[in-house]
């Protein structure tokens, strides 16, 4: 998998994750540490690649959500131990507040960023998953941080990123963003009004060091689609429920448990995020947010015995639901 790590260690680590076995995962990491690997290298060369693999295994329906979730909990506990090892002693001064946006539960990416900052001597106040704008602003008032670092993995969370950038910048505090919801060039981040963007935990360090001390409030979004994003975001549950009804009616099943497993379950879980991705594409002015969500959902559904052509059906149903919103409708004809 990686020149620096033995294939064996990577395989052992993934094996421990597959069983949700903390002790075994910790043992692999301790072995690598004894062999001289630095904590940051363990994070980027063992934990992160294993997490990406976990995502693929779930998408292919090889692993259950429960396994994916338990695996991530193990990686998080391993990360916590490693972070304690990397932290430069006696950090003081204004911290960076590191947090996930509201309703974003992918905390491990934020944890990796926090570890990189701490290792570079930057004090961190780590809030973890799912912080609301209220919570963030309260922390900003209490700590007077030099910056807020927001992590966002879901394209559907981009409207919330925008809301939190507005809330934090209103306090004059710079905001740096990152995570898999952003494009590597940082275009979406810039559109949303972030002060800075970085693609990895390592790059977050110089990006934080280069931040201005104070920033003016975020400019209002004026691009076409910004207003529609607010409407779609507000109505996403109703839209998802309509589409779900329509699709399920077109593919009836006699099996009473059909809706709690297989493609129907996956669809029920993902529809709100698919509609959210439309809002995300609109607010970030980037159609590829939606394209990515559609491609991924297509992969997921096809591995769960969905009827062929279901993804096209979904896109058409979405287009029908959003026909009164011209920018959104254009996105969907593209997808």
């Amino acid at each position: 998998m990686n020149a620096g790590v033995g294939e064996r260690s990577s395989a052992d680590y993934l094996d421990a994750l597959s069983r949700g076995d903390r002790r075994a995962a910790q043992a692999v990491v301790e072995r690598l540490r004894r062999e001289g690997m630095s904590p940051l290298d363990v994070m980027t060369q063992v934990i992160a690649p294993a997490q990406y693999r976990v995502g693929e295994l779930w998408a292919d329906d090889s692993w259950s959500v429960a396994q994916e979730h338990a695996a991530t909990a193990v990686s998080e506990s391993v990360l916590a131990v490693l972070t304690a090892d990397t932290e430069a002693p006696g950090l003081s001064g204004a911290p960076v507040v590191v947090s996930c946006v509201e309703q974003e539960w992918h905390a491990l990416p934020a944890g990796l960023v926090a570890a990189h900052l701490r290792a570079a001597g930057i004090p961190v106040s780590y809030l973890g998953a799912n912080s609301s704008a209220d919570q963030l602003v309260r922390h900003v008032h209490e700590l007077g941080p030099r910056a807020v670092a927001l992590s966002c993995s879901l394209g559907a969370s981009l409207p919330r990123v925008r809301r939190q950038i507005e809330a934090v910048r209103a306090t004059g505090t710079p905001v740096i963003v990152g995570g898999s919801a952003f494009d590597p060039a940082g275009r979406r981040a810039a559109t949303l009004g972030a002060t800075a963007y970085a693609a990895t935990g390592a790059l977050a360090v110089p990006a934080v060091q280069g931040l201005p001390r104070a920033v003016p409030p975020a400019d209002p979004l004026v691009h076409p689609g910004a207003d529609e994003a607010v409407i779609v975001q507000a109505e996403r549950e109703a839209i998802a429920a309509n589409i779900r009804r329509r699709v399920f009616a077109a593919h009836p099943s006699d099996d009473p448990v059909a809706e709690t497993s297989g493609w129907r379950k996956a669809l029920t879980d993902h529809l709100p995020h698919l509609v959210g991705a439309v809002a995300g594409a609109l607010v970030a002015d980037d159609a590829t947010v939606l394209d990515d969500a559609v491609t991924w959902l297509d992969h997921v559904l096809s591995h769960r015995a969905a009827p062929s052509g279901l993804t096209d059906e979904l896109v058409q149903a979405l287009a029908a639901e959003l026909r009164e919103h011209p920018v959104a409708a254009r996105l969907l004809t593209r997808a």
């Binding site: 429960a66 909990a73 506990s77 709690t260």
Partner: peptide
């Protein structure tokens, strides 16, 4: 029930987080 029965079992952090996530999804 449904969330607990289909969710992870071998790690209490993951168990609590699964419920919390389902709640936050539900609450919007």
């Amino acid at each position: 029930h449904q969330v607990l029965q289909s969710g992870p079992r071998n790690d209490v952090t993951a168990v609590v987080e699964t419920v919390a996530m389902a709640l936050s999804d539900h609450l919007g």
